[in-house]
Amino acid sequence: MSLSDTTAPDAVLTIENGSVAIGGRPVLRHINLSVRVGDFLALMGANGSGKSTLVRAMTGLRPLAGGHITMFGSELSSFHAWHRVGFVPQRSTAASGVPTSVWETVASGRLTRRRLLHPLLPKDRRAIREALEVVGLEDRARDGISTLSGGQQQRVLIARALAGEPELFFLDEPTAGVDLPNQQALATALSTLKERGATVVLVAHELGPLAPLVDRAVVMRDGRIAYDGSPLADHEVHGPLFDDGHTHHHHVEVATRDHTPHVASPLDIERNEESR
């Protein structure tokens, strides 16, 4: 990947030659990725391919063993403007040991913008209410979160990230274990975000109803980026091109296809030139 690609001027997040090691074993290697303003990026790949680890590295939850991450123009280790980032972690449930209302969970997402020991201001309450409206759960605000279905809880977690009014969203498998109607509700919420100009990085096995929103796919394989370009259909991600089980049949092809310049590159150059 060329250097100009990773240092795109409109990049909100850039990883240069990033690597992540867990317990001394290199897991992610040679990660070069640039997320640009307004991208709706789907991070795809098989179980254990490193897509969740990559998101954890991008959000600072996992330290890099090598390379650099630049977030909104500053090195991740010295990045403090966390109110610009919204994170939806991978969760099977949003419940904890003490009863919690939907509203309280969403309100905790507002912390990035609240000052210490200050009460909730009217603008905070407005943001919380709007976040609940975007995911269509405003009528469940006072309910205990444990009374909601898994899909609804996932929408609450998205509302929590929304409440901080961030520009860049990370969603780790928001559709895992969620039924189709709830996936559609989720897609509606995310399309609202996209219309507002938010940048979204989404980890997903299968896109389902989210597919029309995605305008860039990054496929991970064995800890490396195997594909970065225009969206792929769900079956293509695990197709012969990226399926280890078939590589012995198409060994030469795989080697060459891996290095095919991705579709995004020419567009990037144009875009870069426009902004110059």
Binding site: T59, G60, L61, W82, P89, R91, A107, S108, L111
Partner: peptide, 22 residues
């Protein structure tokens, strides 16, 4: 009671709280 928003967030979802900058 005073730091309840922060303490609540950390106890509720540690990873989310960390990415929120706490």
């Amino acid at each position: 009671v005073g730091l309840s928003p922060q303490l609540f967030a950390v106890a509720q979802d540690q990873e989310f709280a960390q990415v929120a900058g706490l």
